[in-house]
Design a protein around this nucleic acid. Structure first.
Lengths: 167, 167
DNA sequence: ATAATACGTCAGCTTTGTTGACATTCCAAG
DNA sequence: CTTGGAATGTCAACAAAGCTGACGTATTAT
């Protein structure tokens, strides 16, 4: 992007259907690896991937509202509510009535919730770290660039909104 | 891997939890974008993502057996069978009894099946192509390197097995 | 002959998504 | 103060796509 113009020239040459298909298949198999470790951990409990996502984003943005979470995850409130209810009942998530706007519920992880989050994200980060190390720092930059370019506009908004919080 | 040792030195400096989390979130949102276009197309029909995967890999490896497909997709035969039955009934997939081993069923896409595959993969390739172009050729290399390093050993076997077919 | 393999199928269960309908609570505008 | 709309929660019903277990059948291998 801010690099030389040299690479833009022959970039198109590499975009054969064969190359693209490999990218598609790599994405498919890699995503399985990406979720494999948390899935294994969650399989022992009564939780699934949906719980993992909720826990992740509540940890990421403590005090986020249900509506916020809905927008990020892109599911219906009924679907999220089922997951959230289980997490609250099991004492992993705390739901606080908003002070400014009492209609809103602000979500926080409890100690137990943070512990689960740590367990799950440790596993996922370990794999990501290993992949990053194996591929090297320049690959990491490229990896992120392609992923960000691959998002829907909707998704990119959500991703960027998260970035603004802390990153 | 076969590159310089220079980059390995400062690689570790970049592996903060913050960086890793961004990678995790990028993966999450990008995968949604990755599947969004086919999902939209399939929503109009009575098909889902499972049908897409079956169609993709039958197109990719014409004449593949049910067991082969099972191993690649990583699902149970009951689950795959439901999908496959629908595709055969709808005339998108042809199932041929094996000549050497008559227990095996070899799977092929019909004309209609190929047409659907083209429609789906065109959409997905378009997005992948756009992402590749936006990110540049060096990013593409990095993207693939990280993805391949992120796969489970099991997944990588399946991915490599596919690569050997044509790529 | 017998065992193992490949495939199909029936039945039942789980997770995670969907719609639609409806109640409650609360803010804000009239 | 009343009322309309927004945010949330809940109930019911359903679908997609995964799972296990059991069973049958044809075919191949031992």
């Amino acid at each position: 992007m801010e690099g030389s113009g040299r690479e833009s020239g022959n970039a198109l040459l590499f975009l054969t259907d064969e190359q693209l298909r490999k990218g598609i298949e790599a994405m498919f198999f890699a995503y399985r690896g990406f979720t494999a470790d948390p899935d294994r951990i969650l399989a022992d409990m009564a939780y699934g991937r949906a719980h993992h996502r909720a826990v992740h984003f509540i940890h990421r943005s403590p005090g986020t509202t249900v509506n916020n979470l809905l927008a990020i995850l892109g599911v219906t409130k009924q679907s999220l509510n089922r997951v959230l209810r289980a997490l609250v009942e099991d004492g992993l998530v705390r739901s606080e009535v908003g002070k400014r706007d009492k209609r809103e519920r602000h979500l926080y992880l409890t100690e137990a919730g943070e512990a689960l989050e740590r367990q799950l994200s440790d596993a996922q980060r370990d794999r990501m770290r290993a992949a990053y190390r194996a591929a090297g720092p320049e690959a990491v930059t490229g990896f992120r660039q392609v992923l960000e370019a691959m998002m829907d506009d909707e998704m990119r908004k959500r991703y960027d909104a998260l970035k603004d919080l802390k990153g």
